[in-house]
Amino acid sequence: MSGRPPVGVLRGGPPGWLAAAPALLVAALFCGYPVAVMVANSFGVGQAPADTGPTLDHYLNAFASSAVRGALIASVIVAGGSVLLTLGIAIPVVLRLARDNRAGRGTVLADALLTLPIALPGIIIGFFAIVLTGRTGLLGLAWDGFSGLAYTLPGLLVAYIYFAIPRVLGPLRGAAETLDPGLADSARTLGASRIRVFCTITLPLLLPAAIEVGGTAMAVALGGYGTVATLSEGVRLLPLNVVNELTTGYRLASSSALAVLLACLSVLALVAGRVLSRTVRKGFLS
């Protein structure tokens, strides 16, 4: 944002922040405050029954529980792995789509289909996994190994790739579209092979965007509940534990602690994506 003086201010009218006030109030009341209460709950200083006094027990218990540790690790593997794999798939696809688009070949249908999963709740994606690779899944008819795959770690990984595709492809598509094709052309005339052009020009220029997009997608994937809820009889991920603490006995404090843990992971992924992307962008010259 620039330091330009605001143009188009209602001169002599009410100050600009007044326009923002209602939205800020809603955000503070229904996001800021509840999140603060949730954090307080996790330390035992929130509302009943999580008002037992300041304590770190809920976090210590969480880390002591092997179920929670397992879910945590599985969550990181599934969210991180699916996003990494999606990036590997998405980069060639967005480059291809950008080229087609420049050449005037229509990409509307491909764009529409690749965006589709963003409008589908996670539960439907989980259900897809059941239809295809559940115990009576369609793919199981072709090969027995597919039966029940939905409830395993690799199956969950594939379901999360489905979840991540539109969230990675969409923003990355914009980045690929802004890449100057003249750069790759120039590199080629200078004698670089296609692989060399990809490794030294296209990929480095796309990498900062890819890292940032990856961080955001991983944050979203970590917090995703629907997919794993549908497939809950298989691998356990952390969001299931958060809900479990509430639905079996309303242990608000320990549920809040797990929720805070999950939020921290997401924020970590988000911030790491931004920071790493900036570092890569700056570190190119070395």
């Binding site: 709950n41 944050a219 979203v220 917090g223 509940y225 958060v242 549920s255 929720a259 988000l270």
Partner: peptide
Amino acid sequence: RLTGYLVNVPLAVPGIALSVALIGTY
């Protein structure tokens, strides 16, 4: 700028965490 970051908090806070917080508070 701060507002820009704060409004984005729901992107980072998992939906279930926000839901847990909301029913607890209101």
